[in-house]
Design a protein around this nucleic acid. Structure first.
Length: 687
DNA sequence: CCTGGCATCATTTTT
DNA sequence: TGATGCCAGG
């Protein structure tokens, strides 16, 4: 990683630039993280207390890594002040917890995760009687998120509908309003709200803004090209007074427009912050000249950019290769064979290999193949751990312990394991509760008292009551211990065993996940000093759940067997998840029109294709020594075999862009007279 | 109240 | 091809 032992001139310039607005345009592999950390150290050396420095990263993983490296570099004693390094979401949670009451939010709002968002969206659409074919929950959330990322409220959404918007946008606007009402009613906020509400706080309460801004004297922002409108406003509000704002990013790696990221922020930075210093890092220490050449040729096809050209400082290697497979199964077999032969030759180790895909669905065949050949791999970035039913159940149990009035959590586990409270009963009580204006928990107890429930349901509520009662004395027993008692009382282990009685290994694996949450809680408890009283315990658990939802706390994935040399695994991930990582050998698979660029961007016009190109660029620049691209001639889609065309990016990155035709010469509909493979046209001959 | 079987219909990326 | 939702029967 640190191919450059000393900072080069440009890096040095960035690190020591005068305090004030600073834009570091850092291409891929130019040592940008290093620069951020070195600048923190530089500021500290100049007499700034590290704790007055705030660095914002894009992901929690990046934050953890940066914090680790910063601590090493600062070489302080244990209790010495350390810089604050976190994602903007974690930062906002902390700000909100301090000011929630002033915004008319329930003092203890809960953050809902993607799954609950989708559940809420689904319900909203059902209430509005919108058929799923018109607007799916995920689509609604997508649009809501887009609105929120630029600060558009439900009421503004209607006003903002442009003339050419189809009716689905109107439905989405209506859905947005209902969705927001639903969240409000349960005191919940989603990921976007965290930012939206902080922005609102800063606009309406100048004193709060100043108070938060004054906690730091310096602000550094990593991956600045991916900031959304609302994020930009929050960051600006924090930096406005001291103007010590150092942003680092690469416009060519902006790949989150769909989430509201605006590339304009990095393009116009110098304009919006007058007097800003601009430093460009173009010396790449990561990849061979062959790989950099492909990357440069590719990205030159994009329109709006700062126009950097990377210069490789690494020794020459092999040119990128392109492999054409019959179908996706063939592709996976040949790619994995390549991995194996490289390993056999000793050309690389597993930990230095990665297979990158455009969509999560593509990972499937590769997983199968890797498992078949017994190659250790890790699926990165999938929120699979947190999506697991048992993990969400445990989180709901835990939430209930401190927040019995949390309707979402209660309805999740009210009948898990089954205790006579059917979905129907719960739904009925939920409606009654919202009519009466109190919580589901309250309603259940009231309904039982009024004799409106079956005996079985009554018993079930009694069981829940006993579980919730565990909160008293939890401070003494300890949080993790209390959770174990609770799970015991709920008989959750037996529940899992029964659920998967035909597959005991599965039941065991799922229980392991439960254990991991308990362990993570124990960890968190130790790190934060257990709660002293009921209130302290509640705060501890709430903080833990916040972190878990934001994935700040690492719940270590269950390690299968004792891996030889732990961490020595091939990484399998999406291109998005690969941002910020690097490997000796990278395979980019599925290089076909419709996958990369994705079909949906093909319909969305040039801007969308530019973003796909940046995505491709990100993939290419992950590779240090070897880059292998592959594509399929046909692909199985919904049980049907469909032909594929090579991605335009393959032509572009080999300098043959002119050979790509937007429309296939022969209409795809016209079947070729002779069945079988199409003429093996030589795609992208090298050089 | 719960379970299993059948019909339907789908197209991305994630803090 | 596979996930998910709905309905009928225990």
């Amino acid at each position: 990683m640190d191919a450059a032992p000393k900072l080069n001139a440009a890096q040095m310039q960035a690190v020591t630039a005068p305090v004030g607005p600073l834009l570091v345009l850092a291409g891929a592999g130019t040592g940008k993280t290093r620069v951020v950390i070195a600048r923190i150290a530089h500021l500290a050396r100049r007499g700034n207390c590290p704790s007055r420095i705030l660095a914002v990263t894009f992901t929690n993983k990046a934050a953890r890594e940066m914090l680790g490296r910063a601590n090493t570099l600062l070489q302080r004693k244990k209790d010495a002040p350390r810089p604050e390094i976190s994602t903007i979401h974690s930062l906002c949670v902390r700000i909100l917890r301090r000011h929630a009451a002033r915004l008319g939010y329930p003092e203890r709002f809960t953050i809902i995760d993607r799954g609950d968002q989708e559940g809420t969206a689904r319900k909203v659409l059902k209430e509005l009687k919108v058929p799923e074919a018109t607007l799916r929950p995920a689509d609604l959330l997508d649009r809501v998120s887009r609105w929120k990322s630029v600060g558009i409220r439900p009421d503004d959404a209607f006003a903002n509908l442009s003339g050419d918007a189809d009716e689905s946008w109107e439905l989405a606007a209506a859905g947005y309003r209902r969705y927001q009402q639903a969240l409000r009613a349960t005191g919940a906020v989603d990921f976007d709200d965290l930012l939206l509400v902080v922005d609102e706080l800063f606009t309406t309460h100048e004193d709060a803004r100043r108070q938060e801004a004054s906690r730091f004297d310096h602000l550094l922002v990593d991956e600045y090209q991916d900031t959304s409108g609302i994020q930009e406003r929050i960051l600006a509000a924090l930096a406005r007074d001291h103007r010590s704002l150092c942003v680092v990013g690469d416009d060519d790696q902006s790949i989150y427009a769909w989430r509201g990221a605006q590339i304009a922020h990095i393009l116009d930075f110098a304009h919006r912050w007058p007097g800003a210093t601009v430093v460009r890092l173009e010396e790449n220490y990561r990849s061979t000249p062959e790989i950099i050449k492909a990357a440069n040729t590719l990205i030159a096809h994009n329109g709006r950019r700062h126009g950097k050209t990377l210069v490789s400082k690494a020794p020459s290697g092999v040119p990128p290769t392109i492999m054409q497979a019959q179908d996706e199964v063939d592709e996976s077999q040949r790619v994995v064979s390549e991995v194996e032969s490289l390993l056999r030759e000793g050309a690389t180790i597993l930990a230095e290999t990665a297979i990158l895909v455009r969509t999560g669905e593509q990972t499937r065949v590769f997983e199968q193949e890797l498992r078949r050949r017994d190659i250790a791999y890790e699926l990165i970035g999938s929120r699979s751990f947190f999506d697991r039913r048992e993990v969400k159940d445990v989180m709901a149990f835990l939430r209930l312990l401190v927040e019995p009035d949390d309707d979402l959590a209660l309805s999740r586990i009210a009948n898990v394991p089954p205790r006579g409270l059917s979905a129907h009963t719960i739904e009925k009580c939920r409606t009654a509760a919202s009519l009466a204006g109190h919580s589901l928990w309250h309603e259940l107890q009231a309904a039982r008292a009024a004799g409106r429930l079956t005996a079985a349901a009554g018993t079930g509520i009694g069981m829940l009551e006993r579980m919730v009662a565990l909160r008293h004395g939890a401070a003494v027993a300890g949080a993790a211990e209390t959770l174990r008692t609770l799970l015991d009382q709920a008989d959750y282990r037996r529940h899992l065993d029964r659920e998967y009685e035909e597959d005991l290994a599965e039941a065991e694996a799922r229980w392991q996940c439960v254990e991991e949450v308990a362990n993570a809680l124990a960890h968190y408890e130790k790190a934060h000093g257990g709660g002293r009283d009921d209130e302290g315990f509640a705060r501890l658990v709430r903080g833990f759940l916040d972190d878990l939802i934001l994935e700040v706390t690492e719940a270590e994935r269950h390690e299968t067997d004792k891996e030889k040399g732990k961490g020595n695994k091939l990484r399998l991930m999406t291109l998005h998840a690969a941002k910020g990582l690097e490997f000796d050998c990278v395979w980019m698979v599925g290089m076909e029109e419709g996958i990369l660029p994705h079909i949906r961007s093909l319909n969305d016009g040039l801007q969308a294709i530019d973003e796909e190109r940046r995505l491709c660029y990100v993939g290419v620049t992950r590779a240090r020594k070897r880059l292998s691209l592959s594509l399929c001639l046909t692909r199985m889609k919904w049980g049907k075999t469909k032909p594929c065309r090579p991605s335009r990016f393959l032509y572009e990155l080999t300098g043959q862009a002119e050979k790509f035709q937007e429309q296939p010469a022969a209409p795809a509909a016209a079947p070729s007279p002779t069945k079988g493979k199409r003429p093996a046209k030589r795609v992208a001959k090298r050089r």
